[in-house]
Amino acid sequence: MNATLTAPVRRSPLAHRSAVSAPDDLLHLSERAFDAKIVLRGLPEVLAPAVGKVTGLAMPEATRSTANETHRLLWQSPDEFLLLGPVDGELELMAALTAELDGQHVQIVNVTDYHTTLVLSGPKARETLMTLSTLDLHPRGFALDQVAGTTFGHALGWLVQTRDDEAEGGPSFEILVRWSHADYLFCELTHGARAFGMPEARPVSGEKMEI
């Protein structure tokens, strides 16, 4: 290795933000960066044995996800799934899945750095999401383990509910958002939650455009 280099520093898209909360635990918003993230393309019956062997997870039904303590598998389309795993586990997961699926008509792509994960939890999480999303986010319309790819304002993201409404602390949602939309979405969520006392984050700006 080149001796002159400093040690590699890994920066998440929201490294400049800290977790924020509304009073009385009404709402918490934070980034969980660096989860391993792998896109799996292929028919579920083709993927199922390998996924089961490597992660212990079953393939999710349409618009649902399956999860255990270490991994979560999100349905994204009839032939597309997003696997989430432990931090720094992506290369190992890629290797294991590639070995299991060798010769099959599948695609395994590392997208660990493509997205980051925003975690929004608390009794006011649903109302906050409703300021940005056209989904039916009432508990009757969106429940535990459900998954949807949608827009949040002008940002794209995948939403999944990871903690039940009845659980202590209220429901928890995770949004997988692409790097370049993360700051916008973080700020929009704090903005939408002002009424609950959430401290408002302002988007990074100040780029000089005019010459």
């Binding site: 920066r11 898209p13 400049h16 300021t131 304002g153 002008h154 940002a155 790097w179 370049s180 939309h181 700051d183 916008y184 979405l185 700020c187 929009e188 903005h191 939408g192 302002r202 988007p203 990074v204 700006s205 780029e207």
Partner: peptide, 17 residues
């Protein structure tokens, strides 16, 4: 709420800062 700095995502690269 989609006005001012919230109007559109300002997409930046990891080197943006």
């Amino acid at each position: 709420q989609h006005v001012g700095p919230h109007f559109m995502p300002r997409r930046g690269t990891p080197m943006h800062a």
